[in-house]
Design a protein around this nucleic acid. Sequence first.
DNA 1: TCAAAATATGGAGATCATCTCCACTTGTCA
DNA 2: TGACAAGTGGAGATGATCTCCATATTTTGA
Lengths: 225, 225
Amino acid sequence: MTADKPLRADAQRKRQALLAKAREVFDAGDFFDLRFDDFARLAGVGTGTLYRHFPTREALAEAVYHGEVAALCDRARQLQATLPAAEALATFLRGMVAHIAAHEGLARTLATLMADRSSALAEGSRALEQAVADLVAAAVRDGTVRDDVGAGAVMMALHGISAAHDRPGWRAEADDVITLVLDGLRRPRPSVRLAEGEVHEVRTAARHQVRDQPAQAQPQRRRPL
Amino acid sequence: MTADKPLRADAQRKRQALLAKAREVFDAGDFFDLRFDDFARLAGVGTGTLYRHFPTREALAEAVYHGEVAALCDRARQLQATLPAAEALATFLRGMVAHIAAHEGLARTLATLMADRSSALAEGSRALEQAVADLVAAAVRDGTVRDDVGAGAVMMALHGISAAHDRPGWRAEADDVITLVLDGLRRPRPSVRLAEGEVHEVRTAARHQVRDQPAQAQPQRRRPL
DNA sequence: TCAAAATATGGAGATCATCTCCACTTGTCA
DNA sequence: TGACAAGTGGAGATGATCTCCATATTTTGA
């Protein structure tokens, strides 16, 4: 995947410069106010070089996104290894909100690209989704979380959180969403009197499929161009 | 608001044609594959006229969106008048998912525009938000829903649902999100000691402050331009 | 009823971002 | 070190967006 070619020394330097500048611009939230050509100049390369390395904005975004995702996945794994499942999940989600809050511009940029043509980005977020799915699955396994709701729903909620980044009371609302999700995930059968004593077993056989299904019959992917 | 000016008769006709065609194109999901100029031709007007009525894609989208929102608000009011608060809320949210599912292209278009520059769209969705807030408030008032989580969180979740429209298992996941939200909203105190003997309390709400935020671990500073 | 004033139209072309192409520079390998 | 491969940059082709205004349509009021 990354080992396509050796890539010459100077090329690597340019590529790095591009990525560094991209991260910077993303974080400042200026990505879309900038002509792509100007971005090249800003990073100190010619337009040709920019296009050689990253044929589209999306390609560039994906590359930046990769680092993000890797860090988050690490964190997820680490939490999962050191905390009880439910707590690991909760901590991860709350941390996610904090992370997004700390990188406002980046989050907004990614959300935009996500909505636009998710192709590249969706690919990149696969790993993140897997991490979340693992956290959820672990919590389901130890009975602290219901098993009739997939991890996909959690991803959707996260999606909403980062997509709605410019709402006035964002931070508080985002925390609320996480609260709702976590409370909603708790105990398997919320519907009725689950009063004091009786709550039935959670790790039922009904095992929901928590992982992603491999490319099913291509949904209606619209061809951008 | 709408009564800015009388607007000449033929102008009104053109405007209507534009809106009608826009709704059509939106719903087909072709909005972004189409040159804006071509859209004008498609609707049977000149480009100048198109730009006069709707200076940007966003402006056009907002106009279309308005109808959508109005319909949804009506529905909300109607439900609120005829059902117990909690049920009205649940029905509305489930209906919302169904609605989005039924208008795939439109939802996708709006989600994209939403993420891009929410200014115009956010304005338009104010009314929808108010409707949701009313539903939630009513449910809070009659005690079926917790009062420590705002309606904004619900909006965010809805946002996520429509933003993530191209996920493979969208419908199921969207329903799951609603389930989580509704269950999460139920009963103000989720501190239940639920079953199994041991339950590490997961507690509620935002009292959690994630530590170790690599807030400015970023090596490069921002420099907008 | 009709002419003048006000309002709206459409599309040719100016403007601007994206992307391609290739003459030239830089790195690599023997 | 020479020669060949790999990479570079930026001038200009391309194509979408938006402006401008001569022309057409509606409204006004006498």
